[in-house]
Simulated scan of single mutants.
Amino acid sequence: MSLKDQITEDMKTAMRAKDSERLGTIRLLQAAMKQKEVDERIVLDDAAIVAIVDKLIKQRKDSITAFEGAGRQDLADKEKAELAVLAAYLPERMSEAEVQQAVQAIVAELGASGPGDMGKVMGAVKARLAGKADMGLVSAAVKAALAR
Protein backbone atom coordinates (compact mmCIF):
# COMPACT_ATOMS: atom_id res chain seq x y z
CA MET A 1 0.00 0.00 0.00
CA SER A 2 1.44 3.37 -0.96
CA LEU A 3 1.82 6.13 1.59
CA LYS A 4 -0.89 8.15 -0.16
CA ASP A 5 -3.35 5.24 0.18
CA GLN A 6 -2.35 4.79 3.82
CA ILE A 7 -3.10 8.46 4.55
CA THR A 8 -6.50 8.16 2.87
CA GLU A 9 -7.32 5.04 4.90
CA ASP A 10 -6.22 6.76 8.11
CA MET A 11 -8.50 9.68 7.28
CA LYS A 12 -11.45 7.33 6.86
CA THR A 13 -10.61 5.61 10.14
CA ALA A 14 -10.41 8.97 11.95
CA MET A 15 -13.78 9.96 10.47
CA ARG A 16 -15.40 6.74 11.67
CA ALA A 17 -13.86 7.15 15.13
CA LYS A 18 -14.90 10.82 15.26
CA ASP A 19 -11.30 11.74 16.15
CA SER A 20 -11.47 15.39 15.12
CA GLU A 21 -7.86 16.35 16.02
CA ARG A 22 -6.34 13.48 14.05
CA LEU A 23 -8.78 14.05 11.18
CA GLY A 24 -7.89 17.74 11.01
CA THR A 25 -4.17 16.98 10.84
CA ILE A 26 -4.62 14.34 8.14
CA ARG A 27 -6.78 16.72 6.10
CA LEU A 28 -4.07 19.37 6.46
CA LEU A 29 -1.53 16.88 5.10
CA GLN A 30 -3.81 15.90 2.22
CA ALA A 31 -4.36 19.56 1.36
CA ALA A 32 -0.59 20.11 1.21
CA MET A 33 -0.21 17.05 -1.00
CA LYS A 34 -3.02 18.12 -3.34
CA GLN A 35 -1.56 21.64 -3.57
CA LYS A 36 1.82 20.22 -4.64
CA GLU A 37 0.16 17.96 -7.23
CA VAL A 38 -1.88 20.80 -8.70
CA ASP A 39 0.96 23.35 -8.68
CA GLU A 40 3.48 21.06 -10.34
CA ARG A 41 1.03 18.90 -12.34
CA ILE A 42 2.52 15.69 -11.02
CA VAL A 43 1.39 12.62 -9.11
CA LEU A 44 3.24 12.37 -5.82
CA ASP A 45 5.28 9.30 -5.01
CA ASP A 46 6.17 8.19 -1.48
CA ALA A 47 9.45 10.18 -1.45
CA ALA A 48 7.65 13.42 -2.34
CA ILE A 49 5.04 12.78 0.34
CA VAL A 50 7.77 12.18 2.94
CA ALA A 51 9.31 15.53 1.92
CA ILE A 52 5.96 17.26 2.47
CA VAL A 53 5.54 15.56 5.86
CA ASP A 54 9.09 16.65 6.78
CA LYS A 55 8.24 20.25 5.87
CA LEU A 56 5.03 20.18 7.92
CA ILE A 57 6.89 18.70 10.91
CA LYS A 58 9.52 21.43 10.71
CA GLN A 59 6.73 24.03 10.71
CA ARG A 60 5.18 22.41 13.78
CA LYS A 61 8.50 22.39 15.64
CA ASP A 62 9.04 26.08 14.86
CA SER A 63 5.51 26.88 16.02
CA ILE A 64 5.96 24.94 19.26
CA THR A 65 9.12 26.92 20.04
CA ALA A 66 7.38 30.22 19.29
CA PHE A 67 4.25 29.38 21.29
CA GLU A 68 6.21 28.17 24.31
CA GLY A 69 8.35 31.31 24.17
CA ALA A 70 5.19 33.43 24.18
CA GLY A 71 3.68 31.48 27.08
CA ARG A 72 0.88 29.90 25.01
CA GLN A 73 1.11 26.31 26.21
CA ASP A 74 -2.40 25.53 24.91
CA LEU A 75 -1.36 26.26 21.34
CA ALA A 76 1.97 24.47 21.81
CA ASP A 77 0.11 21.35 22.97
CA LYS A 78 -2.11 21.46 19.88
CA GLU A 79 0.97 21.66 17.64
CA LYS A 80 2.59 18.77 19.53
CA ALA A 81 -0.49 16.62 18.91
CA GLU A 82 -0.31 17.43 15.17
CA LEU A 83 3.41 16.65 15.20
CA ALA A 84 2.73 13.20 16.65
CA VAL A 85 0.17 12.41 13.93
CA LEU A 86 2.49 13.59 11.15
CA ALA A 87 5.52 11.72 12.54
CA ALA A 88 3.68 8.42 12.00
CA TYR A 89 4.04 8.90 8.22
CA LEU A 90 7.82 9.18 8.28
CA PRO A 91 10.04 6.16 7.70
CA GLU A 92 12.32 5.00 10.50
CA ARG A 93 14.90 7.73 11.14
CA MET A 94 18.64 7.16 11.20
CA SER A 95 20.42 7.56 14.54
CA GLU A 96 22.95 10.32 15.08
CA ALA A 97 25.84 7.83 14.76
CA GLU A 98 24.45 6.46 11.49
CA VAL A 99 24.09 10.00 10.12
CA GLN A 100 27.69 10.80 11.03
CA GLN A 101 28.94 7.61 9.36
CA ALA A 102 26.99 8.33 6.18
CA VAL A 103 28.24 11.93 6.08
CA GLN A 104 31.85 10.82 6.61
CA ALA A 105 31.52 8.33 3.75
CA ILE A 106 30.08 10.95 1.40
CA VAL A 107 32.74 13.53 2.35
CA ALA A 108 35.47 10.96 1.67
CA GLU A 109 33.82 9.90 -1.60
CA LEU A 110 33.62 13.50 -2.85
CA GLY A 111 37.08 14.39 -1.57
CA ALA A 112 35.59 17.46 0.11
CA SER A 113 37.58 19.52 2.58
CA GLY A 114 36.84 22.78 4.30
CA PRO A 115 33.67 24.83 4.69
CA GLY A 116 33.79 25.88 1.02
CA ASP A 117 32.60 22.43 -0.04
CA MET A 118 29.52 22.51 2.23
CA GLY A 119 27.09 23.07 -0.67
CA LYS A 120 28.49 20.21 -2.72
CA VAL A 121 28.40 17.82 0.24
CA MET A 122 24.90 18.88 1.37
CA GLY A 123 23.57 18.31 -2.16
CA ALA A 124 24.90 14.75 -2.21
CA VAL A 125 23.82 14.04 1.37
CA LYS A 126 20.33 15.41 0.77
CA ALA A 127 19.90 13.16 -2.27
CA ARG A 128 20.83 10.04 -0.30
CA LEU A 129 19.37 10.73 3.13
CA ALA A 130 16.19 12.66 2.30
CA GLY A 131 13.37 11.30 4.46
CA LYS A 132 15.72 8.96 6.31
CA ALA A 133 17.36 11.51 8.60
CA ASP A 134 16.62 14.80 10.29
CA MET A 135 18.25 17.43 8.08
CA GLY A 136 19.19 19.53 11.12
CA LEU A 137 21.32 16.62 12.35
CA VAL A 138 22.72 16.11 8.86
CA SER A 139 23.73 19.76 8.54
CA ALA A 140 25.52 19.68 11.90
CA ALA A 141 27.32 16.46 10.94
CA VAL A 142 28.44 17.95 7.61
CA LYS A 143 29.77 21.09 9.34
CA ALA A 144 31.65 18.95 11.84
CA ALA A 145 33.10 16.71 9.13
CA LEU A 146 34.29 19.64 7.03
CA ALA A 147 35.77 21.50 10.01
CA ARG A 148 38.36 18.74 10.52
Rank of each mutant, 00 (worst) to 15 (best):
E92K: 15
E92W: 05
E92H: 10
R93T: 01
R93N: 00
R93S: 08
R93M: 05
M94H: 07
M94Y: 12
S95L: 09
S95G: 05
E96P: 01
E96T: 10
A97V: 08
A97Y: 02
E98K: 12
E98D: 14
E98V: 08
V99K: 12
V99F: 07
V99I: 15
Q100G: 13
Q100H: 08
Q100N: 13
Q100A: 05
Q101F: 06
A102H: 04
A102R: 08
V103E: 01
V103S: 02
Q104E: 09
Q104F: 02
Q104C: 02
A105M: 07
A105Q: 11
A105E: 10
I106L: 10
I106V: 10
I106W: 02
V107Y: 10
A108G: 04
E109G: 00
E109W: 00
L110A: 07
L110C: 05
L110N: 04
G111A: 01
G111W: 00
G111Q: 00
G111M: 01
G111Y: 00
G111H: 02
G111P: 01
G111R: 00
A112C: 10
A112N: 10
S113K: 14
S113W: 01
S113Q: 13
S113G: 05
G114Y: 02
G114W: 01
G114D: 02
G114Q: 03
P115F: 11
P115D: 11
P115I: 15
G116K: 14
G116S: 13
G116Q: 15
D117W: 11
D117S: 15
M118D: 10
M118N: 13
M118L: 14
M118R: 15
M118A: 14
M118E: 15
G119F: 09
G119C: 00
K120Y: 00
K120E: 09
K120R: 15
K120L: 09
K120M: 06
K120C: 00
V121P: 10
M122T: 14
G123V: 08
G123P: 07
G123D: 11
A124C: 08
A124N: 13
A124Q: 12
V125G: 05
V125Q: 07
V125W: 03
V125R: 07
K126Q: 12
K126N: 15
K126V: 01
A127N: 10
A127E: 14
A127Q: 13
A127D: 15
R128E: 15
R128F: 05
L129C: 06
L129A: 08
L129F: 06
